[in-house]
Amino acid sequence: MNTIVSRASPYLLLTPAAVIIFAITLYPIVNLFWIAFHATNYFQIGSFNAGANFFSLFNASGMRSFVATAIFVIASDVLALSLAIFLALLLEAPLRNRGLLRTVVMVPWLVSQVVTALLWQAMLDANFGPLAHLAQVMFGVSFAPLGNEFGAMASMVIANVWRSYPFALVLMLAALQSIPSEMYEAARIDGATRWQEFRYISLPMAGQTAMVVLILLTFEYFTLVTIPFIMTSGGPNEATYLLSLRVWREAFTNYHFGYSAAAGVVVFCLNLVLALVYIRKFAVKGGADVQR
């Protein structure tokens, strides 16, 4: 009797978590696939239509979404991660007022995506934004970054990085802090340069966390919709029309639930591929920590 209980107990302990997670995610995913392969008329689900809903994803406009998503995700990833690593290395140093500096640098983490989007939209406003004002007063030029394709994408990436680097920084700081200081001391005795310390101690020890952070950021950026929705509406010229925004707009502006679900399936599958790579590389080895 006792052994049965003790054998069952790990499963019982995991049950609440598993029930909640699967109850909330499985049904919507199955439903999503179902809708993606059916004709829809507003909210009504019609007959099976094979992959017809996916066609609209593979025309010129659909391609722009793939390109925009790739640019947005990769640029944000590179900037946010390198900024986080760089700052983490610096904030590990025995700075004066280190606690305060760490706090200040992390402040944007507390700002929601809604506020981020509204804030940056206002700051970059061509007529009233402080940046436009500065450009006009100091250089006599007009400054309207949201008005052209490159500027809009760059603005969105910057706003996104501004909001999301602090969390990456927290994880990187945590990883660096867990490196035993004896290792550095030993290296110092051996006469290692700073670069060598970074290359042969920090990087290998914190590299795995960096990869985890990279993948977590990628997931987030892939499915982010609030910032383009509020900040650029996907424009100009669909330059910032991310796949995620397409999912949203097809559903709630165009009422094409089939198209929306099809785009959603694509996003899901891309996520899944990444997830599998991630799990093979890191999670199975154990110990990697994950937080969205």
Binding site: A126, L146, A152, G235, N237
Partner: peptide, 11 residues
Amino acid sequence: PDNISALTRDN
């Protein structure tokens, strides 16, 4: 101006 592509009614 040539930045009207991005302007909304609110702007």
